[in-house]
Nucleic acid binder design. Structure first.
Lengths: 342, 342
DNA sequence: CTGAAAGCGCTTACAG
DNA sequence: CTGAAAGCGCTTACAG
């Protein structure tokens, strides 16, 4: 490991003070002689000097670093968001720490603490839903933007970018009704305190209880743990209770669950759309090649990440002043494929 | 933003010097009176003091931070590796910076520089293949472990964790031969300087040119850009040239390409395994629900990441001394599904 | 077992 | 336009 050269060495070699080199590094050329600038430039190049960001951060109290805390890094949804964040950050010279809380509020809170200790400039969080108060307080100290999942605590909210879940469920329900389903079922993971799950279940209940749908049966099934066997059990149950005249339509509220449904259906030797029509959430890259191809509610995942990062960086550049609290909800769309052909 | 409390404040409140508080923070309890320890503990808790990692890093020249540079963060393969890295790092208190070079050597080199400026303790790199010299030199200064893709330059190599590509291709070829294919085709992205691609193509050529396979045709097609239309063109071409008596078997050398093949086949109104048997690389979560379900060479992606991170952290804890250079190749396995049923 | 002091590599008023 | 000096919040020999 060769000796690190420091700003002092550059200053010495260029015959100026470290203050002047520092000004050069920070692009304050207007208050600097051209000769000086050129001299420093040359010395830096010839010595191959690289400023130490740790020292810069300590002094300037900004690190050009953002913490991204994901609830489930394996979810394709999270990855697309992460990519959106990464690209927006790279564009503005920000670097991202990535943390995976695995839906554990404890881990999430530990990550928040670790990241604060590392003096990140801001947070993008896909929260577990179990740290509302912590996050509301965090947002009072440092810029925070939530993605996918919103929170509120004691009447306070935090910046967020998510989707219009009511619209998503409405598109799905309407599509199934158009396809003449008369029995609708929503499959959801436990809602816990996770806003999109609550909103989707709520929307489904609201939509199916409309007066003009008297002749339509509907039900919500919560899948406690997303395992093929468990999903298969739930589906068996549904088939058993099903009236032979019923035309069944099922909606799964996220991509992982959709996948589990496909696997469970296979295990049960059932077929979609023969046994039921099926709509999933999230247009993953594989949605079009499954058997059958999947009708989905497509979410603008990449945009969610990109918008969140840009919002955050804007706050940062404006010193977190007069930033209006914002809850952005992006529209979704339905992509019809073979799983809802009847 | 409330005023940050510093080690000085804690020392003052506890009636000790900052040196002693520092010792406490670093767990040097053996050289410390019990009273002192308890007093400091209490003060830290009551003041809710959080050490500033930036300052600690500057002084100690270690940041407990690792840079992960991925070639393609959208590839499920990369994500599984990332998860393996993340978990191993979290276990040892390391945090990861994630960078996405998008197969651009220029971006990759810029990220290396940025990460060095941030004084990361080490690197895990899934390299683009375009910075061999840079990375060999980097590895001389700081611990580096490569994942998935190996490099060598001027007879020097770098620690790596990857898979046995020859074995993978051999499993695929053998399987297709068992299924009585007499015409084998390997589909690969441009090999460039990317080791697994070179190894897979090389293995295929070596295996198919064996003396006892005189009656077997074989060919390699390089897909310049992985787009459905391009893949469809290549497949059309293959079908056209195909002798009606031939029994065709196709191998795609990565998951993204496999997906493109499935989509192209659909677009061409062809079917697998009627028109050809098909084997992909990488057992993605969706491989079992495609139409048809996919026979694949399954790679231990999570392990690759976990091993790499553990190797790196071991180096770090031993101060990068007497670490034997290691090129670890994990075994793969073939998972037979419907795409190779004849 | 503990403290005084130096210093990690920068940036930032302040003064000129 | 430029420099001297202080200081960001820690850690680490050194001395006792």
């Amino acid at each position: 490991m060769k000796k690190q050269i420091a700003i002092r060495d550059v200053a010495l070699a260029a015959g100026v003070s470290t203050a002047t080199v520092s000004r050069y590094l920070n692009g304050k050329f207007q208050s600097m002689g051209e000769n000086t600038r050129l001299r420093i430039e040359k010395v830096i190049k010839s010595m191959d000097y690289k400023p130490n960001d740790v020292a810069r951060s300590l002094r300037s109290t900004k690190s050009n670093t953002i913490a991204v805390i994901l609830s489930d890094i394996l979810n394709p949804y999270s990855i697309a968001i992460l990519q959106g964040i990464e690209e927006a950050c790279a564009e503005f010279g920000y670097t991202i720490f990535v943390c995976n809380s695995k839906e554990s509020p404890l881990k999430e809170s530990e990550f928040v603490e670790m990241m604060m200790a590392k003096r990140v400039d801001g947070f993008v969080i896909n929260t577990t839903g179990g740290n509302d108060e912590l996050i509301v307080n965090l947002a009072a100290e440092i810029p925070v933007v939530l993605v996918g999942r919103k929170i509120s605590k004691n009447g306070k909210t935090v910046n967020s970018v998510s989707i219009d879940n009511f619209q998503g469920v409405a598109l799905a329900v309407d599509h199934l009704l158009e396809k003449r389903c008369n029995s609708l079922i929503l499959l959801s993971p436990p809602t816990n305190r996770i806003s999109p799950r609550i909103e989707r279940v709520g929307a489904f209940l609201a939509l199916t209880s409309q007066a003009n749908l008297d002749n339509i049966k509907s039900d919500v099934h919560i899948i406690e743990k997303i395992q093929i066997d468990r999903v298969a059990e739930v589906l068996s149950d549904i088939f058993e209770k099903k009236n032979s005249a019923d035309s069944l339509g099922i909606i799964a509220t996220n991509g992982i669950l959709s996948l589990a449904v496909l696997k469970a259906v296979k295990q049960l030797n059932r077929t979609i759309p023969a046994d039921f029509l099926f709509i999933g959430f999230d247009d993953t890259e594989w949605s079009s090649v499954t058997n059958p191809s999947l009708t989905v509610i497509s979410q603008p995942t990449y945009q969610i990440g990109a918008f969140a990062a840009k919002k955050l960086i804007t706050s940062l550049l404006q010193n977190n002043e007069n930033i209006d609290l914002e809850s952005l909800e992006l529209p979704v769309q339905l992509i019809a494929r073979d799983s809802t052909i009847n």
